[in-house]
Amino acid sequence: MGVDRRKFLKIAGISAALGLGGSVGWQLLRPGQLDAAEEPWNTPYQWVTRDHGALKEVPNPRALKGKRWGMAVDMKKFTPATAKAAVEACNYYHNVPSIPTKQDIKWIWLAPYKNVFPEVENPMAGDYTDMDYITMCNHCDQPPCVRVCPTKATFRRDDGIVLMDFHRCIGCRFCMAACPYGSRSFNFQDPRPFIKKQYDGFPTRAKGVVEKCNFCAERLAVGKLPYCAEASGGAMIFGDVDNAGSALRKALRGRYSIRRKPNLGTNPQVYYLV
């Protein structure tokens, strides 16, 4: 009889586990009540998945289109005031918190030449190596962060912008180890208490995800330039690197420009005009 009892317990256990966890329990308790909520796939709209054919989404017709977005930072036009304005505009409109510890979040910030361009030090050059440089995600052509991400939570769009999908990031921080520019930050805690003034037009982030500069993808989508470029008083020139007629290409043509760690093969798309 031992075997029979064991078999019985097995069946009872399995059905209990399935029944109580699933719909059977609900049906017993509240017959009919949850039918609608339970089976959305029974509705005529069962095709609502990402690769459906029936719903239509299109880009905003006013959206700016580019083949490879880039930024030039004109160090001659930069003043401490315009730099500050650019940083503050970004921080406010993206709800970037200010955390007074080593677990801070940064999208765009100022750092001395020797930190932004380590190993390219030139103590004799004087003028341009004495300045603070604006530092942000380089939106690399060959981004190492995208290469290492195990969930495609960070990805490179066709227009060259390296974006974060905060809905998908698992917070493994592999991208932070991979980024050769220290451009990524991790939300070690809930950032909301550290946002001084909240901007309702853009979401905050949750604890446990990595974030960084998004080249104002949300602005380009409605036909506007990035906040920092707008606030910099012409010192930051945003444009399409692949378009020979763009303002960016014009700025790059006449001036000597440097990029951060070009020897790593990442092909950064932020150019510094010196």
Binding site: T49, H52, L55, E57, P59, N60, L163, H167, A221
Partner: peptide, 17 residues
């Protein structure tokens, strides 16, 4: 969820019903 993926990953922001 579809909206989220369209906006974040594809950059399409207009939905036509």
């Amino acid at each position: 969820n579809v909206w989220r993926d369209m906006v974040v990953r594809d950059g399409d922001r207009i939905f036509i019903n």
